[in-house]
Design a protein around this nucleic acid. Structure first.
Lengths: 107, 107
DNA sequence: GTGTATAGGTAGCTCGGCTACATGTAGCAG
DNA sequence: CTGCTACATGTAGCCGAGCTACCTATACAC
């Protein structure tokens, strides 16, 4: 997949993967790769800043867990994040309808 | 629709709207707006440079028409552009499958 | 003659995701 | 006990596609 087609949809992916469960950054990257059959392999330099941005925006909350001596910052959706996710899903729906409609249209 | 969700899909739109017909830049913008029920209203500063880029890439060919005193640069798909369009459509398919799959997935 | 729609074009900015780097732990092979 | 790999988090700075804000020019209505 071309690199920057992701532009503008990253937040939706991160919120969606945290829907209903807590994960730390590294696990988020793995979960996205798993769910997309390896199509998504986001670099840490993409994911970590995005997570912090979403936390600052109030969509995520984080806490430090220490599991077997390893520090992990686990993230979970806030209520506001749930709403944002719903909005992102709606926007995705609209986006695919619009672009898909143009791409499929006959001359 | 958020501004930069378009990122990476503009070429596909332009190629698709020229599939099977010749249009000039201004008409392309109108055609896209029409096909998307007004959701797409691309500024000329987006479309014109993109058209020239696609022409340099060999996907489009252009010629000057003079209609009722007006100069119009009309574009049409080249054979190479046809192939590019097919590729873009396939990529769009993959893209929506991947992202859509993640967004719809249950925890 | 003034305003509006049509028509094409460019310089420069913006900002999101990527590249490349820095840091550190756990566990295994040898 | 050394080296290597996987795990885990993070930042500085680049890059480029699309956008903003302009400029130019013609046809036509009023």
């Amino acid at each position: 997949m071309k690199a920057d087609t992701l532009r503008g949809h990253l937040d939706a992916l991160l919120l969606a993967v945290l829907d209903g469960r807590k994960l730390h950054g590294y696990a988020i990257i793995e979960a996205l790769s798993l769910r997309s059959d390896g199509a998504l392999d986001l670099p840490t330099g993409t994911v970590y800043p995005a997570l912090r941005r979403l936390e600052r925006a109030g969509y995520l909350a984080s806490e430090w867990d220490v599991v077997s001596g390893r520090k992990r910052r686990t993230y979970r959706l806030t209520r506001s994040g749930q709403q944002a996710l719903a909005a992102e899903r709606a926007e995705w729906q609209e986006f695919t309808t619009v672009i898909g409609g143009v791409l499929r249209a006959e001359a």
